[in-house]
Design a protein around this nucleic acid. Sequence first.
DNA 1: AACAGATATATGTACTTTGCATATTAGTGG
DNA 2: CCACTAATATGCAAAGTACATATATCTGTT
Lengths: 243, 243
Amino acid sequence: MNETDFLKDYDPSAFQRPSVAVDLVLLGIRAGRPAVLLVKRDQLPHAGRWALPGGFVGIDESLDAAAARVLREKAGMGEAHLEQLYTFGAVERDPRMRIISVAYLALLTEQAFDAALGAKPALLPAAIHAARAGETGGPVDMLSPDGEKLTLAFDHADILATAMLRLRGKLDYSDVAFALLPEFFTLRQLQDVHEAILGTSLNKPAFRRRQLDKGWLMATGAYESGAAFRPAELYRFQRLMAD
Amino acid sequence: MNETDFLKDYDPSAFQRPSVAVDLVLLGIRAGRPAVLLVKRDQLPHAGRWALPGGFVGIDESLDAAAARVLREKAGMGEAHLEQLYTFGAVERDPRMRIISVAYLALLTEQAFDAALGAKPALLPAAIHAARAGETGGPVDMLSPDGEKLTLAFDHADILATAMLRLRGKLDYSDVAFALLPEFFTLRQLQDVHEAILGTSLNKPAFRRRQLDKGWLMATGAYESGAAFRPAELYRFQRLMAD
DNA sequence: AACAGATATATGTACTTTGCATATTAGTGG
DNA sequence: CCACTAATATGCAAAGTACATATATCTGTT
C-alpha cells in the first residue's frame, strides 16, 4: 500500500460519504395472505407513491437501533421480531443523492399489525401476491385493500421480493413462523402461517407430525374456545436448549 | 414543485454521515480445510493485527462494484464468486470513526487462491478451524501457516463466523460449492469441498447419489489422469434451466 | 502376464422421512 | 339423539438416506 492509498483509507474527510438509511418491511398475515404496511410519500421524489417506512441512521446509532427506532416512530410499536435483510446500494436508487439502505424485516403478529394500523392510520396495509413461481426472488405484486395494484417507490419492490424470499427460505428451519403468531396458538394457525407464506396448501397430518417431531412446540393442555366444533389444543413455542 | 426543482433545493449536508466500507472474506479450500486471506494492519488501531481486506465505498460506486474493486486491488483478482454477506454497523466497531461495513463473501478456487498469494505476497493464508458445535455462528479459530492462533482486528472475527455459517447453510441447496472448484472436477473433489466446509466426513455412496440426483452435474466423458489407481470421471457444473 | 494395492463406481438392504387416505374423537347446533 | 365440522390419530406406500459390500479400472511390481 503506497502513501496515497494510505491517506485515502485513513482520512475520512478525503471521501465524500453516502447517506445510510434503514428501510423496514413490516410484515404480517392478514386474511390468509402476507401483508405489509406502507407509507405514502408526500415529497419528491416519487411523491404520491407508497414506500416502506424508513429513516436515516444516526451517527451515534447502530443499525439495529435505527431499525428499532423506525419501528417505534413509524409503526408505534415497541416489540417485534426484527432481523437485517440485505443492504441495497445501487448508485441511482435514489435520485436525490447517494443513499445506501440497510433493509430490515419486521415480523408482526396479527394483533401487532392491527395495533400499528390503529396507532398510525396513515399506514396502508397492502396484500402481497408473491407468485409461487418467483422462487428466484421474482416479482411481487402488491394490492391495496380495494384491490388496486400498487407501484412502490425507489427499489422497494426489490426489497419486498427479497423479504419474501428470505421468509420462505427460513420458514422450516428457523422460528420465524412463531414471530407471526401470538404466544398461544393452535397447530392449524401455525399451518395457516406456513401456507400463507409459501402460497401453497400443505398436507395436514404430515405438517402436524413434522412440527411436533421438531420438539419446538410445548403443549399447554389448554384448548381454544368459541369454535363450533372440536376445539384445538393450544401450543406455545419453546426454544431448543442445545443442538 | 417538480422533481428537478426539488433536487436543486435539496440539502444533502443536513445529516452527519457515517463512512461506508466493504470488507471481503476471501475464502478458499487449502489442504482440506477452509482458509481465508488476510492483510496485516500497519497502522493504529489494531496495528500488527490481521484483518480482512477492505476499502471505502466511493460516492459513485455501487456496493457490488466496491467489493469487486477491492477484490481486484487487494487480491489482484478479476473473477470470483462474490455475494453480499451482512452489514455490520455497531457504533464502536471502529474506534477512529463511525464506519459501517458491508461484508462480502468471495469464493476462490484453489488456483485463484494461490494466484492471489502470488500476486500479493503480503496476504496471509490462514486456516479456519470452525468448531462443528458452533452452529449458531459461534467462535471461529484462525491459525497462521505456522500454527499460531490469530486474533483479528475490529469485529472481523464476527464477520468470518458469519461467513462460515452462511456457507454451511447454503452448501446443499445452492451452487456455492462449485465456486470453490475448477471447471472440471471429480465427485471426490466435490465431496472434499463439502467435508471441508462442514467439518465432518460424509458417506461416499450417499453423497454421490444425492449430488447426481440433483441434476446439476454434467458428466464429461473425460477422466482425470495421473492417478495411481482407477481414474475418476470429470464432471462440470451445469445450472438448472427452470425449477 | 499375473497380481497386489488403491480408489472409483455400483448395488442391496434396512431405516427414516414424507405424502396421502382413512379412521376416530370432541365439540356445536338442531 | 343426530348431523356437521374440524381436531386428532393411524396405516401404508413412496421416496429418500445411511451404510455395508461388491465390482471395475487404473498403476506398479514381480
